[in-house]
Nucleic acid binder design. Structure first.
Length: 601
RNA sequence: GGGGGCGUGGUGUAGCGGUUAACACGCCGGCCUGUCAAGCCGGAGAUCGCGGGUUCGAUCCCCGUCGUCCCCGCCA
């Protein structure tokens, strides 16, 4: 080793000892004949003192060193005098008196700030990711990610799970997300697909009798990016045999609770986690992934407002919709401008406008729609909505689909602006009892709301033919602070039921056999009842780190356009490579178009 | 595919129809033996992303384009 100690471990106990440190120049402060170097490695920062009189050669080297130079420094640990102790650094009680310094490598001035408090813009950070990853924030996030996966592995291993790797080169499943395809040299015109998740493989492992499987699994989906979505991401993929829903929920609750308590400094709102049905989540919060760090649930006031004469409300109800409210606490005094902002949000989400009722501090009503309601009805309305003096009632009057969006967006906005969301808090909630199908307007068919391997609730199997919309499934999602952080289900393990589902979602028998024959066949050889779940690792680490997007917890993420701007992927390839893969580019396709010229240095 | 924000020395920002384009950090040089956001002095460094238009005059206004981020669609 080129070092005897790390830059984070020396204390008064080592005073007088000879040590050798190696790391990067975090900061250099020169007084001419006396130079201080803050030397950094992954474990911390240690101050090195170089005295021109005591060590002239070392001083000369220190004088020429610059930020981010890689140095090896030999010297002696020395206690700092009382007035020079730095209580802000873990190693602040000591310093290393250098006797010799070797420049292991020089460094250009970095294009992004590594030690400063200023954040360089993300495009630059990604282009120089190897430098960005030197920053304390990134080092902390990578460590947290490691701690998280280590915890998961230990936790599951202790409970009898074993980690099994499944192929990255697999088979296309066109009914899901868009696949990343990999051409085959040996099979002209054929393609592998990168797995969107190891779903089928883990189910097959259950058929194989492993009973408790997990994998820190990379998954690939060729869809557009979001702050919480990358083309490749990581799941803690799990599957268990002979379990029922609550077995999975209980185990995951335990895992998540201990994980947060062990690796993060965030606070859990509650554990065990509350469970709400999909129907309740949508009815009260307008979404199947509500942020429950705050309330602001919706109330259905259709029956009350019917007794008034406001045409917008009555019209919405006559057209099969409803009128629901969300209460903005303490916002009765909102100015016209502030209400205008709320109305803009409502309109962006499909509302025609935004009716409001302000319950003023003295209990009187201020509202442009008050004139459509008798005082008694208005009082009942205020009470039903749960509004107190000082509150502002916001109305959504339309189809449920629209008011879910409108009120959901307003609720989210209020949660943010009224600071009802504590960034130090993690609020997990189970969402259960999802519908098995959702109607696909464009294709005019039923789509699985989760995936086609999710089992219907046994008591609903009879409804599959008569009323598919009413069939509930054994699907469950784990939601945290408004993010879906895990999703899973009890699976189908019966070939007949599985074939039935395929036919309901318009996958003809021959297609089902071609795409999923291996699974259907496997079900005939003693498939145990089984189920599982797949927490999204990136999102969990993001939440525990308090980061705004998952790129901050991925060492080398892709940008919004799914490019790696550091290495420059994807790239055009040589014609010879294409030929070997039997691939011909489409007419007019120019892979070199709009490609940035390489940086010349 | 659609909507929106941003793009000014190395970095982060300010600015604005006419400026020697400002500030901080960084960088380079000098002084300095107790700093840890070191200090003091001096210096270099920007065709204001690119192209076109409007204008007597554009970094500023308009259009296009490229880059980047956010959102909708999409994400079984």
């Amino acid at each position: 080793m080129l070092k005897t100690h790390t830059c984070g471990e020396l204390t008064k106990e080592q005073v007088g000892q000879p040590v050798t440190l190696a790391g990067w120049v975090n900061k250099r402060r020169s007084f001419g004949n006396l130079i201080f170097i803050d030397l950094r490695d992954r474990w911390g920062v240690t101050q090195v003192v170089v005295d021109a009189q005591g060590a002239p050669e070392a001083h000369e080297t220190a004088d020429s060193a610059r930020s981010e130079y890689v140095l090896q420094i030999a010297g002696e640990v020395s206690a700092r005098s009382e007035d020079t102790v730095n209580p802000n650094m873990p190693t602040g009680e000591i310093e290393v008196l250098a006797s010799s310094i070797v420049v292991l490598n020089a460094a250009k001035t970095p294009p992004i700030e590594i030690t400063g408090e200023k954040e360089s813009n993300e495009a630059l950070r990604l282009r120089y990711r190897y430098l960005d990853l030197r920053r304390a924030r990134m080092q902390r996030n990578m460590k947290l990610r490691h701690d998280t996966t280590l915890f998961m592995r230990n936790f599951l291993s202790q409970r009898g799970f074993i980690e099994i790797e499944t192929p990255i080169l697999f088979k296309t499943t066109p009914e899901g997300a868009r696949d990343y395809l990999v051409p085959s040299r040996v099979h002209p015109g054929r393609f592998y697909a990168l797995p969107q998740s190891p779903q089928q493989l883990k189910q097959l492992l259950m058929v194989s009798g492993y009973e408790r499987y997990f994998q820190i699994a990379r998954c690939f989906r060729d869809e557009d990016q979001r702050g919480d979505r990358q083309p490749e991401f990581t799941q803690l993929d799990m599957e268990m045999s002979f379990v029922e829903r609550d077995d999975v929920l209980d185990l995951l609750t335990e895992l998540m609770t201990e994980m947060v308590q062990t690796v993060s400094d965030k606070r859990l709102t509650h554990s065990p986690f509350p469970r709400i049905s999909y129907a309740e989540a949508v009815e009260k919060y307008g979404t199947d992934r509500p942020d429950l760090r705050f309330g602001l649930a919706f109330t259905d006031v259709s029956e009350i407002v019917k007794r008034g004469s406001f045409k917008v409300f009555n019209g919405a109800i006559e057209n099969g919709g409803r009128v629901r409210t969300v209460v903005a606490p303490g916002c009765a005094g909102y100015s016209r401008k502030q209400i205008g902002e709320l109305e803009a949000i409502a309109k962006e989400n499909g509302a025609g406008g935004l009716a409001t009722v302000a319950v003023q501090d003295d209990g009187t009503i201020k509202s442009s729609i008050a004139k459509f309601f008798e005082d008694g009805v208005m009082a009942e309305l205020v009470k039903a909505a749960g509004a107190e003096p000082g509150d502002l009632i916001l109305f959504g009057a339309d189809s449920d689909a629209i008011t879910n969006e409108v009120l959901g967006a307003l609720r989210g906005h209020l949660g943010q602006t009224l600071e009802l969301t504590d960034p130090e808090e993690l609020c997990f909630v189970w969402v259960i009892d999802f519908p098995l199908f959702e109607w696909n307007e464009d294709e005019e068919r039923w789509d699985p709301s989760h995936h086609p391997f999710t089992s219907p609730k046994p008591e609903h199997i009879d409804l599959l033919d008569s009323d598919p919309a009413a069939v509930l499934s054994n699907q469950y999602d784990l939601v945290c602070n408004g993010y879906e952080v895990a999703g899973g289900s009890i699976r189908i393990h019966d070939r007949t039921v599985q074939e039935k589902i395929f036919s309901l979602i318009n996958i003809p028998d021959d297609v089902a056999r071609e795409r999923f024959g291996h699974l259907l066949d496997a079900f005939e050889y003693g498939a145990p009842p089984h189920g599982g779940i797949a927490p999204g690792l990136d999102r969990l680490v993001m939440l525990m780190a308090g980061e705004p997007n998952i790129r901050e917890v991925i060492a080398f993420p892709k940008n919004q356009r799914a490019s790696d701007t550091m290495a420059g992927a994807p790239t055009a390839v040589e014609q010879a490579q294409l030929d070997e893969l039997h691939i011909q580019l489409g007419e007019g396709v120019d892979p070199y178009e709009s490609e940035e010229p390489p940086e010349s240095e």
